[in-house]
Amino acid sequence: MKALLSRDSLLKWAPVLVLLVLMLTFPIFEMLNDLARGKEHLYLLDSRFLSVRNFARIAIAAAPALMVALGVTFIIIMGSIDLSMEGTVSVSAVSFAYAFIALGGTLASWAWLAMPLALVVGAAIGMLNGLVHVKLKIPSFMASLAMGFVGTGFALLLTGGERVRVDDPIFRSLLTVRWFNFPIMIYVAGAFLLLMWFVQTRTTLGRNFYAVGGGEELAAASGLNVSRVRILGFTLAGVCYAMGGLLAVGKIGIAETVTGANFMFVSITAVVVGGTALWGGIGGVFNTLIGVLIVFVINNGMVVIGLPSYIQSAVLGALVILAVVLSTDRKAISFVK
């Protein structure tokens, strides 16, 4: 029991606690709302927020962002940052849509090849990003910032500003067909999460991310090819962004230049709220899952309890600060930038 309540485990589980508190708080507001209107309401049991239907809604909204956030998780664990995700998501989504239509326009044909193609496109952009960062010795912040412009610009070049519709019923079954109340895309996202968890915990590459983030000079001194790890990390992130692009197209059936818009702040916020520190070396994919859920539970919960939508971002902002304060061991750091 003592070990459970130690400061370390508290720090580790703080994001989960925040998520649980949020999920128990929204039903309270719901109950108060209903009671004030004279309706009967049993706490938790009559909750519209804590219903399978609503969880499916949250999961659908969160799935593409989770993919993107998983990618940037590895980058942040390495102590770098990636701001190029919006461009990569758009380019992968748009190339998928064009290839899909050109190859037949239905999953029952060779058009399924468009999906691996999109992942390859994402990997290529990610690798280019990593190469610019490592080979030209440009800090990842600047390199990825500029690559983000290139990505969004390339997506615009491909589409010319047009929207590309992907309305093949088999592809759209990602959203429309449900197993146990959840659409297929949720299972796809879950499988991808497990795959990334495998990469993080069971592969040399995954451990090397932590080595680079924990102390780059030490890692290099012990014979690790840091440049290679970095480039591979950005390539892997590119694959994750492409996955996010695919799910985003699966969700709305449209690929366009702005498919990737807003993913940058949402994904970085989610990673940080989940407890992965910006200075690298700690955190992981499950932290990111919790972080993404916190962000989307807030968005959804505020709507369910009928709060005006403009408050959402303020609550999110306050929680971001709270989450970081809770997960920071202040004795261990002398200053922050």
């Binding site: 408050i311 959402q312 902002g317 306050a318 970081v324 920071t328 750091i333 200053f335 922050v336 930038k337």
Partner: peptide
């Protein structure tokens, strides 16, 4: 203040403050 007193890196504190300010602007 948040950066210096709570040891929140400015990348995060200003990102969060941006969210709060956005709420104000929308309201």
């Amino acid at each position: 203040l948040v950066t210096t007193k709570f040891y929140v890196p400015s990348f995060v504190s200003t990102l969060a403050m941006g969210f709060v300010v956005l709420s104000g602007a929308k309201w």
